[in-house]
């Protein structure tokens, strides 16, 4: 699943490690989500959105 997690995280100068710690997953999980190789649960999507101060639409909604 394509998403804007990496872009938003880098925009906020946050490291993968910091985001991982905030949402209580491993850095590998964050890396997989950013590369679109793992589809997180809605619960984790919400946690990531809150940590980055964005909405689910901002991060995970695909616009053609």
């Amino acid at each position: 699943m394509k998403n804007k997690v990496k872009f938003t995280r880098m925009e906020q100068k946050m490291t993968q490690e910091q985001l991982a710690r905030q949402v209580r997953v491993t850095r590998q999980t964050i890396g997989l989500i950013e590369k679109g190789e793992y589809n997180p649960t809605l619960q984790l999507c919400v946690a990531i959105a809150k940590a980055l101060g964005k909405t689910l639409d901002d991060l995970f909604w695909e616009v053609d």
Binding site: K6, R9, M10, Q16, Q28, G31, E34
Partner: peptide, 11 residues
Amino acid sequence: RSYWKNRELID
């Protein structure tokens, strides 16, 4: 295996 996998995911 973990190191190979993680290397691809690093920012």
